[in-house]
Structure formats: C-alpha cells, structure tokens
Amino acid sequence: MKLVDIETVETGQTLGKTIFSSNGTVLLSKGVQLTVYMISTLKRLGVTTVYLDNPMYRDIPEDEVLNDETKRAVIHLMSETFESLRSGKAFNTKAVSQTVDEMLDEILKNQNMLVQLSDIRTEDNAMFMHAMNVCMISCLLGLNMGLNMIQLKELAIGALLHDIGKIGAPEEQEGRMHHAWRGFELIKNKREYSLLIAHVAFQHHESVDGSGAPRGLTGDDIHTYAKIAAVANVYDNLIYGTDGEAPLLPHEACERLNAMSGTRLDHEVLIQFMRIVSIYPNGISVRLTNRQIGVVVGQHRGLPGRPVVRILNKDGDEAVGFNEMDLAQHPTVFIESVLS
C-alpha cells in the first residue's frame, strides 16, 4: 500500500487500509474500490490522506503493533466509555482492564516493531484513535524503559484514559477545571485502580521545566508514567494535527519533539522514544540525496532514519528486479525529502 493525498484519489482505485467508524465498526474495508460518493464522504469526515492498494507495493509489510480486531475493540470500548461519561454514568472499569490486557498481550508479541501511525482518522473517531495510540506508544516506551507487567498495566490504563476529563468540560479550562484535574477526579475513586493510574491523567500536561498545567510541577515531581504519556500524547497530536495546526510528517514531528527536550518533555523518555519510532514509515515516497526517488519498504530498529527504500524509475514505476537500497548499508546516502 502507498500513502497518498485524498485530493489525488481517483474513482476505481482500491483502498489499502481499513477505516473505522466512531464506534469501532468498519466504515470502509481494505480492498474496496472507491467511488465518487466514498471519496467525497471521506473528505467530509475530515480525512486528508489514505492508503491505496497498488500491485507494486503489496509486499510491503504493514508492521502494525495492533491488529484490526484489537483496534476495533479499543475504539468500541472508548466510544462506550465516553458515552457513559456524557450521560453521567460510571464507566466500566472491568471492560477497560480486560481490553488493556488484550492490548498488552499483542504489544508484547510485537514489541520489536517500530511505531508507525498509519490509521486513517476521521473527525468522528479522532478522540478514540488518539487514546489508543497514546496507550500503545506508552506501552512500547514502558517496555523499553524496563517497566514490569504491573507497572505496564497501570501505565496502559492511565494512558488510555488520559483525556477522559475532556468529556463535558468547557473549551477553556483553568485550575481545578482543567481536563487533567477532571480526569484525575474521575479515576482516583475507582477502587480497582491504583492512584498512579489517576496521576497519568492528572500530570500528562505538566512540563519538566514547570511551565505545564494544571499545577506547574517540575522534574521529579512528575511521575514517570505521566512523562511517558506526555511524549506519546504530543507525538500523536503532531502527527494528526490539533488545535488548527496542520499534521506533521513523522520526521517533522520528531524534530519538534527534540526541540521540547528538557522543557516540555523529559529528555530520557525522548531518547527511548527515538528508539521505537519509525521516522520514515513504510509506504511513503522519498527523494534521496543521490537524486533517486523511491518508496520506503522496510525498517531497522535502532536506526529509524535509515530505512530500506525501493527505487523507482523516472516514470514512477518500480525499477526492474526490485532494486532496493538499504540505507543502513549506504552511509553516504540520506533521505533528502518526503514527497506528497
């Protein structure tokens, strides 16, 4: 599959990746031929890019940490959780714990895969996708940082629920009305949960230099779980775009994160994050410094900036014989730019 701008999609092209609705059901399935109505509906739902199927790229591994079934379950759970809160009811803590257990099982199996946020987000499913991604990234970070299973589950539940204070809250929040404080209040009295879980929601907007909210905590006063969730939260927001900002490409988002090291975000957590993220995800088109153009088809854990690139000829077709350049083996060749 190959990532393309929605404005370039033509009728009859084949969708390369499933798109989910707000309650976890399938909105459009991978493999469906796109119609004019489907394309216009995706645009109306706020979709800006899609993955298309292409015979040239069918062998490119998707390298998904979570499979589609798990994603559907998580999105459905978050939809039900947020709906319960909107109606003034308690959310189902047992269901959250069970879903987190399923996520952790899958994350443990795929812990050597790099983070590649390739799911297509709509205006309706954005909050649920965000919660899922922050949880998934946080768990991978926690594994990299040596957390045990009890700690990983606390972190995972806190990361999945980090934004529940936003439900029913006003747009502008200060002090005890900040959504982080509201989230803390919603979670802390759940007897099934450790108080540390509530502190993920409470502290994920704190900054290590004291400029964060809602309490202006600094350094070691911020729990490690919250420092981890903060990095995951900011990265996902940068990739998909929030508060009117345009979405960034992964390498651009990583540069922005590094600029926040020691101020907004914890330096040590960022070091670990750069070891688990794919700066140039599979399926994107790139131009190399040797002037060749290609599509990223493979990754190296620990070398996020040195993927495997399938070289295309001047007409944009795959070069004869699957000519691939492993940038880990070509230290003088770099990715010059990402092509739209």
Rank of each mutant, 00 (worst) to 15 (best):
A198P: 03
A198M: 01
A198V: 08
A198T: 07
H199V: 03
V200N: 04
V200A: 09
F202R: 07
F202D: 02
F202C: 03
F202N: 06
F202K: 03
Q203T: 06
Q203F: 04
H204M: 08
H204Q: 11
H204T: 07
H205N: 12
H205K: 13
H205D: 12
E206V: 01
E206D: 09
E206G: 06
E206F: 05
E206K: 05
E206A: 02
S207Y: 14
S207V: 02
S207D: 12
S207H: 15
V208W: 09
V208I: 15
V208D: 05
V208H: 07
D209A: 08
D209V: 05
G210K: 00
G210Y: 00
S211I: 03
S211Y: 03
S211A: 14
S211N: 12
S211F: 05
G212R: 04
G212P: 01
G212S: 06
G212C: 08
A213F: 13
A213N: 12
A213Y: 13
P214V: 01
P214R: 02
P214C: 03
P214L: 03
R215A: 13
R215G: 02
G216E: 02
L217D: 05
L217P: 00
T218Y: 08
T218W: 02
T218F: 05
T218L: 09
T218D: 04
G219W: 09
G219Q: 13
G219P: 04
G219Y: 10
D220W: 11
D220H: 13
D220C: 10
D220Q: 14
D220Y: 12
D220F: 12
D221Q: 15
D221E: 15
D221R: 13
D221V: 04
I222A: 01
I222F: 08
I222T: 01
I222W: 08
I222L: 09
H223Q: 13
H223R: 12
H223I: 14
T224Y: 05
T224D: 13
T224M: 14
Y225C: 09
Y225N: 12
Y225M: 10
Y225W: 11
Y225A: 11
A226N: 08
A226Q: 07
A226V: 08
A226E: 07
A226G: 07
K227F: 08
K227W: 10
I228A: 03
I228R: 03
I228L: 08
A229E: 11
A229N: 10
A229C: 14
A229D: 08
A232M: 11
A232Q: 07
A232W: 11
